[in-house]
Design a binder for these strands. Structure first.
Lengths: 387, 387
DNA sequence: CTGTTAGCGCATTCAA
DNA sequence: TTGAATGCGCTAACAG
């Protein structure tokens, strides 16, 4: 098995492009061209249908049509059905959200203000699970979800349409954030904002427990790979470069690990500290590769990664190099993302229930939970990567 | 290595909950309680700040304030700065989107109408990559993304606020969808809607090429695991249960496989056909487990999965059972999701660039691309799971 | 360069 | 039970 596996591991992926090599291919325009289809409305729509035009056509007042849609009790059953039927026939499908929103002040939208741009946030497993958690709660209550990137331009991107805002993670200009969400219900996740209730996880004790477990099997050489422990430098770093603990969650994880190291009589100064600035496979590869490509004499035999993505990248690259996990290299992660638990070797990590975090934050905004700060529990998952 | 690996594989995950066992823990309310903080506005906000109130306070007209924010050229530089400064001091942070939207008719929002509920869509790798692709395009153009679940209630969830709509995948009530997106730019993905341009992938030739590759190494017994090939039945199914090809994309993939089987002189009737109804790890486990737990004499040695998620689940469960991939069991997927290419054994699959699909659809709505139907290329990825 | 006017589409008074 | 009037916050057209 070992030989075959190694051979397979080393073979590069062959890529065979199917079909036309010349970029994207157009289908015959006629097949799907919008212009080639007749209008779908029953009546030809010369003018945009509105509550008022419908009312005019029916010879009733706008208020009555509005009531037909929103307040059945203000109207005779017969009249209501008559109006609804006529409206449908005219191609009017209900009051426009824009006008309704301006009038009522509510939109049914919950906005999520993400730390990064949307693409990164949706690609990152942790942020993604968090968003899914928020979505799960909104699903149940008929609310819509608006996603906003951290760097929003002057206009604010429409935060002010939202009935409530969830702020996730570290933001550059937090005073600007505060302005945007002023006088609007808000809940923060993984970040403290003055006057805003927050959903947190206790990173310090969780990583302390994890590191204690990892160190029960005494390592020869320890290396730590952190995420955004320092400003913009990628690769090996020194202790002096660390950002302060209130700026990044992984910094608090690091403190727990240092504590465990000290307990185990290992000088934190002696462990190699590496930094990654993007929690993506592509972002982790160069750092992890540099780390693993050291001569065996200096290469670590315990790799403490401050996120699961880093740890999973490490497992992949280690396997590619014929290093056995955990025999040659023990690896731990942090986050407990699903991907790490669905593959062999299963990741040893701390699970923080991101879906629950998102769900709770959304529940607070929907007034299903008291709007108070909370700290959720974590769970130590002992997998195969560091048994 | 083999023995140790197997031992590790079979050991269940141990779970140690860190800290308080009794559910969620509250932090001291004082620390984050909104009420305990003073208002942030410089001036006490008795009334909600609006363009008009700002104008009144400054003794200018509302239009001038509006121009200060939106049309710098309509105003002296000095006046503009004076107004902007005063507005900021008053705690007014720019025109409200709701009023602006009603007035201008544009919102800067692109809505994505998803086939499933939001939680499922965000958890599914394929949908997730698609959403990320849309987001990537919107990121670059300062638009916001609104996510809407397939089953939206009467109100429409706010589609009518969007400047454009992307419809993804099969929807239950497509006539309702058409009503919702009437007289509003729309692009469909993986589905044909009358009068709406669509972004597609050619599933048939792609799966044909994939199956041809898989069959070059003659199998003893083939099994196919499909996704939603039939209505609501999970497990082994017969050919007669198949839905028609225009209802589900995996059905077209199946046709390509049947073609390849026929070419290889294998009777499609003789291959076992299994069905999964949720493209999630949890959804795939029972079906794949049942399939793998057959006696060795009937267990397949080639497993053609109609999605990567199914294939990845199969790899995981096979490894847990000590089956070697690809020696004992060759496995192919479909989709080419990132997770399948970042682990050993790398998945043999067809890559469809979901991010590009999403990006293209969004580009069409933003008028960066002609709004015409297109079919994107696919790429055969030959990994280690079926070399 | 600045102010005035007039709605955008709707829901909510209040009167009939 | 229905209708007329009002304004939510804003911007485009025009007048000054």
């Amino acid at each position: 098995m070992a030989a075959a596996a190694l051979a397979a591991i080393r073979s590069p992926t062959r890529r065979l492009t199917y079909a036309p090599g010349h970029g994207h291919r157009y289908t015959a325009p006629a097949a799907h061209d919008a212009a080639s289809h007749p209008t779908r409305a029953t009546v030809s729509q010369t003018k945009r249908m509105t509550l008022k035009t419908v009312a005019a056509r029916l010879g009733v007042s706008a208020a009555t049509v509005s009531n037909a849609f929103n307040r059945p009790d203000q109207l005779s059953q017969a009249r209501r059905e008559e109006i609804l039927a006529a409206a449908a026939a005219l191609g009017y499908h209900g009051p426009d959200s824009r006008g309704r929103m301006l009038r009522t002040g509510r939109s049914g939208i919950i906005a999520m203000l993400l730390a990064e741009n949307l693409f990164y946030s949706l690609s990152d497993s942790v942020a993604s699970e968090l968003i899914a958690g928020v979505a799960a709660q909104l699903d149940q209550h008929g609310h819509s979800l608006m996603l906003l990137p951290g760097r929003l331009e002057q206009s604010g991107g429409g935060v002010d349409m939202a009935d409530g805002v969830i702020v996730y993670g570290l933001h550059g200009a937090s005073s600007r954030i505060l302005d945007l969400i002023a006088d609007r219900p808000a809940v923060a996740i993984d970040i403290d904002l003055p006057g805003i209730p927050a959903v947190h996880v206790d990173n310090y004790p969780a990583s302390l427990a994890l590191a204690r477990h990892a160190l029960r099997h005494p390592p020869q050489r320890v290396a730590i790979v952190g995420l955004r422990l320092t400003q913009s430098h990628v690769g090996q770093i020194g202790l002096e470069a660390l950002l302060s603990a209130d700026l990044t969650v992984t910094r608090r994880r690091l403190d727990g690990i240092f504590k465990a190291l000290t307990e185990a009589a290992i000088d934190p100064d002696s462990v190699a500290l590496w930094n990654v600035d993007q929690n993506t496979y592509e972002g982790c590869v160069p750092v992890v590769a540099a780390l693993l490509d050291q001569p065996a004499a200096t290469r670590p035999d315990l790799l403490i990664c401050l996120s699961d993505r880093i740890a999973l990248t490490a497992i992949d690259l280690a396997e590619r190099r014929g290093l056995r996990v955990p025999e040659d290299l023990r690896i731990t992660g942090f986050d407990g993302i699903a991907e790490g638990q669905r593959r062999r070797p299963r990741l040893t990590t701390v699970h923080q229930d991101n879906t629950a975090k998102g769900r709770l934050a959304a529940a607070m905004l929907l007034d299903l939970e008291p709007r108070r700060s909370r700290t959720l529990d974590t769970e130590l998952l002992i997998g195969d990567s560091a048994p």
